[in-house]
């Protein structure tokens, strides 16, 4: 019984890793006081989701999703079971680009905030706003 449970847990280790990372990211985004640390948390959060998706694509016994070929090819039939699932990789290429773009805009906003308040600690900024 215990052994079966442990086996089930180990067979799905990819999910535990991504859930842990996601929780770390989410915690950092909500609880951290420094705006840059929040951005770092945001990136951990996004990376966790990327890990999750990429792990969906794994197939035991599958190889890279590049079809073996040569000139005068099509000699042998291609079997889907021999290659990894390419779709999650494609989706995550998109998600990576989105996270880079979001990071760029977030940093630009951070620079703008810093230019205005000379600090990136959220409580200090809020205190300064209240003073006005």
């Amino acid at each position: 019984m215990m052994g079966e449970f442990m086996q089930a847990v180990i067979a799905k280790y990819n999910y535990w890793i991504y859930i842990t990372l996601m929780m770390i990211g989410l915690y950092a985004m909500i609880a951290k006081n420094n705006l840059i640390k929040k951005i770092v948390g945001m990136n951990i959060f996004q990376t966790a989701i990327i890990l999750f998706y990429v792990s969906i694509g794994v197939k035991k016994g599958g190889t890279l999703p590049i079809v073996e070929h040569g000139h005068g090819a099509h000699a042998h039939a291609v079997h889907a079971a021999d290659y990894l699932n390419p779709l999650p990789h494609v989706l995550m290429l998109t998600a990576i680009v989105v996270s880079v773009a979001t990071l760029g805009v977030a940093l630009a906003l951070g620079v703008k905030v810093y230019r205005e308040y000379q600090t990136l600690e959220e409580d200090e900024i809020l205190a300064r706003i209240r003073e006005k």
């Binding site: 089930a8 799905k12 792990s55 016994g61 699932n85 779709l87 999650p88």
Partner: peptide, 12 residues
Amino acid sequence: FPPLGDPNSPAS
């Protein structure tokens, strides 16, 4: 969820 690397998962 299917375990990691399951070749018969719906996604595959």
